[in-house]
Design a protein around this nucleic acid. Structure first.
Lengths: 116, 116
DNA sequence: TATTTCACTTTCCTTTAGGAAAGTACTATA
DNA sequence: TATAGTACTTTCCTAAAGGAAAGTGAAATA
């Protein structure tokens, strides 16, 4: 009694992929990380660099990303006080994911254009 | 008058990444593709290979994936009729994305374990 | 003094995702 | 005849995501 399983196990891949998806889920997390890694540091700059994002969503997602230690919120005590968002080193480990998605997205758009 | 933009443009990356995310969004699409690419072909096999998925969600996601031509639904006219889900060649173009997510997820789990 | 900028928050609302449980129509097997 | 398997669908529900619009408080600028 061991093998009543009629299917092929794929948990070795499914589990870590789901762990990753759980961190970067939703429409906005990767765009925000991309914007911050590009060098946008101010709230309004990030907001303007990502078409369609609202301040409410941006504020919420920035908090999530901070908790996952992908970005940090820096308070600069000049007058006036400035708030800067900077990528943590850990954010850069997402580069291969971003690159593969970018590459696939570019190709996908080409594919759809070509057939229609 | 051209440059009133105080932020850095990152649309070159953000747009294709969002195109990709729009196709593989949600918790379940990549797990299902992984299961089908692993060789699971029957509805119940796919369902059992992905812990937590319900038949309702699986049915809906399979339809979405078919529309994007990532899998195909094959009706085999034996008695009884069998229904098989097979990966389309296009599904294999997702491999770099899956690999990068898997790798990142594995590392992420290690990172969390190590610090706690 | 009035307006603008910055970094948000608040309120209200709609949509989408997802889960639990049961049902269904067909066929196969004991 | 009774049970089990296959591939779903249906109903009901909650939670989370997301959008639109306005507001806020402090400080800078005109």
């Amino acid at each position: 009694m061991a093998n009543k399983m009629g299917y092929l196990s794929c948990l070795d891949t499914v589990k870590p992929v789901r762990d990753a998806i759980d961190v970067i889920n939703g429409k906005w997390k990767l765009p925000i990380i991309i914007s911050v890694m590009t060098g946008n540091e101010r709230f309004t700059d990030i907001q303007e660099s990502i078409p369609g994002i609202t301040p409410k969503v941006l504020a919420k997602e920035l908090k999530d990303l901070e908790q996952h230690q992908l970005i940090k919120r820096v308070i600069v005590d000049d007058y006036p006080v400035k708030i800067l968002y900077k990528p943590e080193p850990y954010a850069h480990t997402l580069t291969p994911i971003i690159d593969s998605l970018k590459h696939w997205g570019l190709n996908h758009r080409k594919r759809i254009f070509d057939k229609e």
